[in-house]
């Protein structure tokens, strides 16, 4: 597959899968205000996913639009990082997963907004503003719940320990990354690691949380090797358009 299609799919699938995860909180969030807030983040991400996937479809030139890419690909064809497909768990887990992603996305989108591919730069620029707010919220919750009660702190630390193993992949480059970087379209993911860690350390200090270390970093999502939970997520997300072909509102 064309490297640029592959590259754009990765960003689109990250947004799509996390959006689908977050919308499962609707009517289940701990408070009504948070319910709406999580739905807002989810809708922002669905909007970003549409832009990325529509562009990926155009680049591919095989007649697939964003719906075809979202609803008619199997798990092995998804290119999202493993982090975003991990189940919601409790509110602490959703918060930690969101914070890790939002912080990475803020750095990645800043890089992409300088892409030589104008379409990528434009999508990234739009997504950046939304992401800045997502990060503000998730960082606030990291600190509130980390530096909160004994229970909230222990749940947050447990979530950090669970999710840390999925953060390594965010900073791993492969051939697609290298090609996109050479063309001035993409960036070097390894270069984001230090600024990401620096901010994580500052947030964790305020949140009285400990950074995990010495864990095996999981990888494979970007290349289509996923955890079991992505299959269930897709089954739920895709059942309608796959059952009723051409279903519309």
């Amino acid at each position: 597959m064309n490297a640029r299609v592959e590259y754009v799919l990765r960003f689109g699938d990250n947004a799509l899968v996390l959006a689908q995860r977050l919308c499962a909180w609707v009517a289940h969030a701990p408070i009504m205000e948070e319910d709406v807030a999580l739905a807002n983040v989810s809708l922002d991400l669905f909007g970003q996913a549409r832009l990325w996937l529509a562009y990926a479809g155009e680049l591919e030139g095989a007649g697939r639009d964003e719906d075809a890419l979202a609803f008619h690909r199997g798990a092995g064809e998804f290119r999202n990082v493993l982090l975003v497909e991990r189940p919601n768990g409790d509110f602490a887990e959703t918060t930690v997963r969101g914070y890790f992603y939002d912080l990475w996305a803020s750095l990645a989108l800043a890089e992409l907004s300088r892409s030589k591919d104008e379409r990528i730069a434009a999508i990234a620029e739009k997504a950046r503003k939304e992401n800045a707010y997502h990060l503000r919220r998730s960082e606030d919750w990291m600190i509130r719940l980390g530096d909160g009660t004994e229970e909230s702190r222990s749940r947050m630390q447990r979530a950090v320990n669970d999710f840390w193993r999925y953060t390594g992949e965010l900073f791993l480059g492969d051939e697609v990354d290298a090609t996109m970087r050479e063309q001035g379209v993409g960036f070097d993911p390894t270069a984001l690691r230090e600024p990401w860690l620096e901010r994580v350390r500052a947030t964790f200090a305020a949140a009285t949380l400990d950074v995990s270390s010495d864990v095996w970093m999981q990888r494979g999502g970007k290349q289509g090797v996923h955890t079991e939970s992505l299959g269930y997520l897709l089954a739920e997300m895709q059942v309608l358009p796959r059952t009723i072909s051409g279903a519309a509102w």
Partner: peptide, 20 residues
């Protein structure tokens, strides 16, 4: 109106509830 723990959360919740 809404519920929030402090000013910062109140402004964020207001943004999410009333300026969507």
């Amino acid at each position: 109106s809404l519920h929030a723990a402090d000013v910062r959360m109140a402004l964020e919740n207001a943004r999410d509830l009333y300026t969507r």
